[in-house]
């Protein structure tokens, strides 16, 4: 009896069917395609955002434009110095005067009915002083871009 079973098992070829492998991979692929945001250019500034607890999540990526403020990374310190600078898109700009054009370039990609929902995400390094941030804020107010988000990391409340 046992020899009968043994023989039968020896005969069959134990192969795993790989027919469903593409399906599994495609599933993963679609997942990553959906959650992906293609990296927008190169970060030329070192930006470590401060910690905060009262955070709002920015939902729609297409309605958000980013302004970075920080010190240039080592590679660019020769060209741009070590003082805090502003980066719009992937360019380091001279000063806040370039912001209105940058906002306008983003605005044309958004349907007009949603212009009021455009948010500027201000990613500022924690070590920067308020002077340059203030200049950017004034420029945003002048260009009537009033929805602003101070980007920050989540902090668990220690005092509570």
């Amino acid at each position: 009896m046992s020899s009968h079973f043994k023989k039968k098992r020896g005969d069959s070829k134990p192969t795993i069917s790989t027919a469903s492998l593409p399906d599994i991979v495609f599933m993963l692929l679609f997942f990553f395609m959906v959650v992906t945001v293609l990296r927008q250019g190169e970060m030329k500034l070192k930006v470590v955002t401060p910690e905060a607890s009262q955070l709002t999540k920015l939902e729609e990526k297409s309605l958000v434009n980013h302004i970075y403020i920080g010190r240039p990374i080592e590679k660019y310190a020769k060209i741009y110095g070590t003082k805090p600078r502003i980066q719009l898109g992937d360019l380091i700009v001279d000063g806040p005067a370039n912001i209105p054009l940058f906002l306008e370039q983003h605005k044309v990609k958004v349907p007009e009915s949603r212009h009021a929902l455009i948010t500027t995400s201000l990613r500022v390094d924690g070590s920067v002083t308020m002077g340059i941030v203030q200049d950017v804020k004034v420029m945003l107010r002048k260009s009537n871009q009033l929805r602003l988000n101070y980007s920050a990391k989540r902090k668990e409340e220690a005092s509570m």
Binding site: T49, A52, Q54, L55, T56, K57, L58, K61, V64, T119, S121, L122, K137, L140, R141, L146, R147, L148, N149, Y150, S151, A152, K153, R154
Partner: peptide
């Protein structure tokens, strides 16, 4: 992207 949302 998370942060403190303010209205200027």
């Amino acid at each position: 992207d998370k942060g403190i949302l303010v209205k200027l």
